[in-house]
């Protein structure tokens, strides 16, 4: 029997919901017999087990090869596996659970606004026999960031529970913590330093070099998942425009539309003739279909209007497939490659 591909996702409340929603939107709905069970399956995809795990554990399980794929926060991957060649980041922008790891100081520290100020403060602290204490759950990322920014004298404080209160309670002087909106930090009278963003992160898809090396069947199953996710992610950047354009001939309409190269679709427009309800002598209508990058949508609409379009409708595609599945190609290369 071919080995099962194991995909680990978060079992934590909001994170779990967001992940399941994302997979469903990519055409990979997860099914499990009952919500208390920790193993599920993907409807329509044989040989894949979906394991519900603690978000923090997913990176480690992927690292040791006990699961093959995982969806977790890029922050956790960067902290726990940036130096681990067995953890491959396949897609780093799944588009949900966006957050930032930031350095924050007590609001009352009026003199400390930049990283340079913090560097000076750490030297002042050292001179007066104190150590700047930084509370964080991300010691590796924080340490590297502080060193990179000229802060060399500090100690990291292991933090349990709510980090934001550590300065107020006197456990630490400043904190490095994850924030989505900054509200919690502000409510706890903390301020993010200028240039104090250590990392911007969102959910990402990681793969285990060890796990996938064992069996080519697993790689093939991973391809099914990657194809759908990658095409779904790519689709976010495109819109499909349908418009009716009046013109003398197909060629004339096509010429007017392709006059603006940037918004004339990926290869060019598709035209098909419209058979009008009320025939208008001497004039023909054509339906034009274009796929344009999302950020050029309004330009495209303007252009279509100029060349005489009406009844313009816009849809979002579910998938946009490229010539090859790029993430799969990257994965194969990385799995083969010796670290």
């Amino acid at each position: 029997m071919a080995p099962t591909l194991r995909l680990a996702i978060s079992s934590k409340g909001a994170y779990e919901e967001a992940t399941l929603r994302f997979l469903e939107s990519a055409g990979l709905p997860v099914w499990r017999p009952n919500p208390r069970q920790y193993v599920g399956r993907i409807s329509g995809l044989e040989g894949v087990d979906v394991l519900f795990q603690r978000t923090e554990d997913i990176v480690h399980k992927v690292a040791d090869g006990s699961v093959d794929l995982g969806i977790t926060g890029y922050d956790l991957v960067a902290e726990h596996a940036s130096d681990n060649p067995d953890v491959l980041v396949v897609l780093d922008d799944l588009g949900f659970r966006r957050c930032e790891l930031v350095l924050a100081v007590p609001e009352g520290w009026l003199d400390i606004t930049t990283m340079a100020d913090l560097a000076d403060l750490s030297v002042d602290f050292k001179r007066s026999g104190r150590t700047l204490r930084v509370a964080t759950k991300f010691p590796n990322l924080t340490r590297d960031f502080l060193y990179r920014n000229g802060v060399h004298y500090f100690s990291l404080v292991d933090a349990h529970g709510a980090l934001e209160v550590a300065p107020a309670l006197g456990h630490a002087d400043i904190i490095a913590d994850l924030t989505e909106t900054g509200v919690t930090l502000r409510e706890n009278r903390l301020r993010i330093l200028e240039g104090g963003v250590i990392l911007r992160a969102q959910a990402c898809l990681i793969a285990s070099r060890r796990g996938l090396r064992q069996a080519s069947e697993k790689l093939e199953r991973a391809r099914s998942i990657l194809e759908l996710i990658e095409a779904r992610l790519r689709a976010r950047h495109y819109r499909v425009i349908t418009a009716n354009v009046r013109g003398e001939s197909e060629a004339a309409v096509a010429e007017r539309i392709t006059a603006n190269v940037a918004i004339a679709g990926q290869q060019g427009p598709t035209l098909s003739r419209v058979y009008p309800k009320f025939p208008d002598a001497g004039c023909t209508w054509y339906e034009v279909r274009l796929i344009v990058p999302r950020d050029l949508l309004l330009h495209a609409i303007d252009h279509l209007r100029q060349v005489g379009s009406s009844d313009i409708t816009v849809n979002s595609p579910d998938y946009v497939f490229a010539q090859r599945c790029e993430s799969y190609d990257r994965l194969c290369e990385a799995v083969e490659h010796e670290p």
């Binding site: 100081v105 007590p106 609001e107 009352g108 520290w109 009026l110 204490r133 300065p167 107020a168 006197g170 002087d173 400043i174 009278r189």
Partner: peptide, 9 residues
Amino acid sequence: GVQLSGGSR
């Protein structure tokens, strides 16, 4: 009314 306390300094 600027808050200067809070934290270790």
